[in-house]
Lab assay of single mutants.
Amino acid sequence: RMRTAFTSTQLLELEREFSSNMYLSRLRRIEIATYLNLSEKQVKIWFQNRRVKHKK
């Protein structure tokens, strides 16, 4: 599987969303994925990984 290289714009938006809410509803995940031109799965995994990073 290929590793996703997020653009700086995508990362900025993902981080902004994360700062306001660490957990996404499915609807919000779809909205963000569509807006950032990513798959729902990519957004889901990014949030999972970001939560782990946040815990450390």
Rank of each mutant, 00 (worst) to 15 (best):
R1W: 08
R1I: 13
R1E: 15
M2Q: 11
M2T: 13
M2I: 10
M2S: 12
M2L: 07
M2H: 08
M2F: 10
M2V: 10
M2W: 10
R3A: 15
R3F: 14
R3H: 14
T4M: 13
T4I: 12
A5W: 09
A5E: 14
A5Y: 10
A5P: 10
F6Q: 01
F6W: 08
F6R: 03
F6M: 13
F6C: 07
F6K: 04
T7D: 10
T7A: 05
S8W: 07
S8Q: 12
S8Y: 06
S8H: 10
S8F: 06
S8C: 11
T9Y: 10
T9N: 11
T9V: 13
T9F: 08
T9E: 15
Q10H: 02
Q10A: 06
Q10L: 00
Q10D: 05
L11K: 07
L11C: 08
L11D: 11
L12D: 14
L12F: 11
L12K: 10
L12W: 09
L12P: 03
E13F: 06
E13C: 06
E13L: 06
E13D: 08
E13H: 08
E13P: 04
E13Q: 07
L14R: 01
L14N: 02
L14F: 03
L14H: 03
L14C: 00
E15M: 00
E15P: 02
E15D: 05
E15K: 02
R16A: 12
E17I: 04
E17R: 01
E17S: 04
F18N: 00
F18Y: 12
F18P: 01
S19I: 11
S19L: 12
S19H: 08
S19R: 08
S20N: 11
S20C: 08
S20A: 13
S20Q: 14
N21A: 04
N21S: 07
N21K: 02
N21D: 10
N21G: 06
M22Y: 09
M22P: 14
M22Q: 12
M22L: 07
Y23W: 06
Y23I: 12
Y23V: 11
L24Q: 00
L24M: 05
L24I: 04
L24N: 05
L24W: 00
S25C: 15
S25A: 05
S25P: 08
S25T: 08
S25R: 05
R26V: 15
R26T: 15
R26K: 08
R26P: 15
R26I: 15
L27I: 10
L27N: 07
L27D: 08
L27T: 08
L27V: 07
L27Q: 11
L27H: 09
R28I: 01
R28H: 00
I30V: 11
I30M: 07
I30W: 03
I30L: 10
E31A: 05
E31D: 05
E31P: 05
E31N: 03
E31H: 05
I32W: 01
I32G: 01
A33S: 12
T34M: 07
T34K: 08
T34G: 05
T34P: 01
Y35K: 09
Y35N: 07
L36D: 04
L36G: 02
L36W: 02
L36S: 03
L36V: 03
N37S: 10
N37T: 08
N37A: 07
L38D: 03
L38F: 02
L38G: 02
L38Y: 00
S39C: 05
S39N: 08
S39T: 13
S39W: 04
S39Q: 09
E40H: 04
E40L: 05
E40F: 04
E40A: 04
E40D: 03
E40T: 05
K41W: 15
K41Y: 15
K41R: 12
K41A: 15
K41L: 15
K41I: 14
Q42V: 10
V43M: 00
V43Y: 01
V43R: 02
K44A: 15
K44W: 15
K44V: 15
K44Q: 14
I45Q: 14
I45V: 13
I45R: 10
W46E: 00
W46P: 02
W46M: 02
W46L: 03
W46Q: 00
F47R: 04
F47H: 02
F47Y: 02
F47S: 03
Q48R: 06
N49A: 09
R50S: 06
R50T: 04
R51M: 14
R51Y: 11
R51D: 03
V52D: 10
V52Q: 13
K53Q: 15
K53Y: 11
K53I: 13
H54N: 06
H54R: 05
H54E: 14
K55C: 11
K55Q: 13
K55A: 12
K55P: 09
K56M: 10
